[in-house]
Simulated assay, not measured.
Amino acid sequence: MDNEKRAADPYSERLWVPLWWWPIAFAIAGLLAAEIHMGAPGVRAWLPYALLFPVPVWVLLWLSRHRVRVHGDASGTPELHADRAHLPVNFVSRAAVVAPTAKSAAMGRQLDPAAYVQHRPWIGPMVLLVLDDPDDPTPYWLISTRHPERVLAALGLPSAG
């Protein structure tokens, strides 16, 4: 059932950490384990490696847990899911792609404190969705995604940027 649901989604993306982080994380865990080991015999020879090598796997998988997904709700209206939050497209008045070069400005002084932000520093582009909902105090959403044009196309929104 879950695979059928995913196949029907117009867009789905998991925000994985870069692949080059994995060897670095294992190298750090190996250095820490070797520091604890320090040539000692017995349990201290293998226990640090057994205990520390699962840590970078858990940390990197935990950092990669977020998803960006677009699918239709019960009425067929596209809906954006950014992790646990969801936004029906009928509440979006404008949408734009935030280029990696403009990301620091969008996340800096120009950022409204009431905005919903799902930012991943290892992903360059973002999607800006300006809301038009009088009952919601959130002015806009800023969502990290590797393919912002595909997200906007799946939502059926024209890109303004």
Rank of each mutant, 00 (worst) to 15 (best):
L61V: 07
W141L: 09
A114Y: 04
M38L: 14
H119V: 06
Y11P: 03
L128G: 01
Y116Q: 05
R120S: 07
V17K: 01
P18D: 01
R67I: 10
P88G: 13
R69A: 08
H37W: 15
L129K: 02
L111R: 10
E13Q: 09
A40N: 14
P18A: 02
R94D: 10
N90I: 02
A25G: 08
V70T: 06
A33K: 03
P100S: 04
I28P: 02
P78W: 04
P134A: 11
K103F: 06
F53W: 11
V43E: 12
P18I: 06
P41W: 08
V117Y: 02
A8L: 13
N3L: 14
L61I: 02
P78M: 09
A114N: 12
M1N: 09
I123V: 15
R94Q: 11
W22V: 09
L87T: 07
V151W: 01
V17E: 00
P121C: 03
A95L: 09
L152Q: 01
H86T: 09
W122M: 05
S12E: 08
L87I: 06
V68Y: 03
A33I: 00
H37T: 07
P148H: 00
E149V: 11
P100I: 00
H147A: 05
P137Y: 12
R109I: 04
D9H: 14
V92D: 04
P148V: 00
A50N: 09
E4C: 00
H71N: 12
Q110A: 15
M126I: 07
P158Q: 13
P121V: 07
E13L: 03
A85N: 10
K103Y: 05
G72T: 14
R84Q: 10
W58D: 00
H119M: 01
L157C: 10
V43R: 13
P78G: 07
L60F: 04
S104G: 05
Q118A: 08
R44P: 04
D132C: 06
A33D: 03
M1I: 06
E4I: 07
A115M: 06
R120I: 14
P125E: 04
P88F: 09
L19S: 09
A34Y: 08
S104M: 11
D83N: 14
L61W: 14
R146Q: 10
M107E: 07
R67W: 15
Q118L: 15
G108V: 10
A74P: 05
T138N: 07
S75M: 11
A29V: 02
L80Y: 04
D133M: 04
M38G: 12
W141V: 02
N3G: 00
V97W: 01
L19P: 00
E13C: 03
D135V: 09
P41T: 09
S144V: 10
G124M: 08
E79T: 15
P100K: 08
P78F: 03
V89W: 00
H119A: 09
V55N: 05
G72Q: 15
A153C: 04
H66K: 13
N3M: 09
A27G: 14
D136W: 10
S144T: 12
Q110P: 00
V127R: 01
P41Q: 06
V130Q: 15
A85D: 12
T77I: 13
I24E: 00
L32M: 15
S12W: 08
H66W: 14
A153I: 00
E79D: 05
R14H: 05
P88Q: 11
S159T: 14
A105W: 11
I123T: 08
E4T: 12
P10G: 06
V57T: 12
V98C: 06
R44G: 12
A34Q: 13
A96W: 01
V43F: 15
P100V: 06
